[in-house]
Computed example of a mutant assay.
Amino acid sequence: MNAQTWTLKTTIDGPEDAPVLVLGHSLGSSHVMWDEVVAALADRVRVIRYDLPGHGGSAPAPLDRPMTMADVTAALTRTLADLGVERYHLAGLSFGGLTTLAMGTAAPAGLESIAVFGSGPVTAPLEQWPERAALVREQGAEGLIEATFERWFTKDARTEHADVWQRVRDAFAGCDREGYAQACEVLGSTDLSDDVAAIAVPTLLVAAENDGALNYDTAEPLARTIGAGATPVEVVRLADVKHMSAVERPREVAVALARHIGVDA
């Protein structure tokens, strides 16, 4: 596998003849953050979860330069082609949400809709990410867990969603240093602010009230920008939740996704 052919590790659930929903995870997590959402959908949806390089036990990307969002979207496109996926809906949270917006702007063949959680078109300030990459390459990601989980979860998540909360924590602790740093490089070089207006597929924005990325206030201007060209845009608001809405509100997230892609909720 080389820079032009590498693909992403996937986990697949659901009937082969069902509509396909592709899910992307956050920086430092893995496909496990979607476990409870998938459990609510997999009887009627073909769910493909991909792991970023260095996440979920996958290897870092085979690159001898900083990774870019174009590298990630190309790898995702190759992955789906290798799986024989011709038509699909794409959703993602945080890094996965930014990737979803990037795919929406690129408009690859077969993309039917997008759903974005916990991300806008840029993860500002951009200059924080090269510093984060350097830190993790030197020290690993474990030292970032406590502050990250404070931003990601409400105080009740550890008890109310203990199994998935622990799986996400284990994924973070086990994240490969180089893979995490590569993802940081992507965040530090990606600003889609001038591109998202070109999105033409139906779009769902899931805004978590207390999220630092996509909350009630930031979702509205993003919806207006995407919808300015008559693209259908829906905003779903989740009260009293932080960044990891897919972990803390899996049933509501599953219902919103099912409705968005046109299957029974």
Score class of each variant (00 low, 15 high):
5 T>D: 15
6 W>S: 08
7 T>D: 01
7 T>V: 12
10 T>Y: 13
13 D>I: 10
15 P>T: 09
18 A>T: 14
24 G>T: 05
26 S>C: 11
31 H>I: 04
32 V>L: 07
33 M>V: 09
33 M>K: 01
36 E>F: 00
38 V>Y: 02
41 L>G: 05
44 R>G: 12
48 I>T: 07
49 R>G: 01
49 R>T: 06
51 D>G: 07
51 D>A: 13
58 S>E: 08
59 A>S: 14
59 A>E: 15
60 P>M: 03
61 A>W: 11
62 P>H: 08
63 L>H: 10
65 R>M: 09
68 T>P: 11
69 M>V: 13
69 M>N: 08
70 A>E: 15
72 V>E: 08
76 L>P: 09
78 R>N: 08
79 T>V: 08
85 V>N: 08
88 Y>S: 06
92 G>L: 02
92 G>K: 03
98 L>P: 01
104 G>M: 04
106 A>P: 04
106 A>E: 13
107 A>I: 03
108 P>N: 06
111 L>P: 05
115 A>N: 03
119 S>K: 08
124 A>D: 15
128 Q>Y: 12
131 E>P: 00
132 R>P: 12
134 A>H: 12
134 A>S: 13
134 A>D: 15
135 L>P: 00
138 E>N: 10
139 Q>L: 14
139 Q>V: 13
140 G>Y: 10
145 I>P: 00
146 E>C: 02
150 E>W: 13
152 W>V: 05
153 F>C: 04
155 K>H: 12
157 A>Y: 02
159 T>N: 12
159 T>C: 00
162 A>N: 09
165 W>Y: 15
166 Q>H: 08
166 Q>A: 14
167 R>W: 10
167 R>P: 09
169 R>N: 05
171 A>G: 03
171 A>W: 04
172 F>A: 06
172 F>S: 06
175 C>L: 09
183 A>K: 00
185 E>D: 15
186 V>P: 02
188 G>V: 08
189 S>V: 01
192 L>K: 05
193 S>A: 10
194 D>M: 10
194 D>P: 01
198 A>I: 00
198 A>Y: 05
198 A>C: 02
199 I>P: 01
200 A>N: 12
203 T>N: 01
203 T>H: 03
206 V>E: 01
208 A>R: 02
211 D>F: 03
211 D>R: 09
212 G>L: 11
219 A>M: 01
219 A>N: 03
221 P>G: 05
223 A>M: 04
224 R>I: 03
224 R>Y: 01
226 I>H: 00
227 G>Y: 00
228 A>Q: 14
229 G>I: 09
231 T>A: 07
231 T>W: 07
232 P>Y: 09
236 V>M: 04
237 R>M: 04
239 A>I: 02
242 K>Q: 11
243 H>G: 02
244 M>Y: 11
244 M>Q: 10
245 S>L: 10
248 E>G: 00
254 A>V: 03
254 A>P: 06
261 I>G: 09
261 I>A: 08
261 I>D: 09
262 G>F: 04
264 D>Q: 14
265 A>W: 10
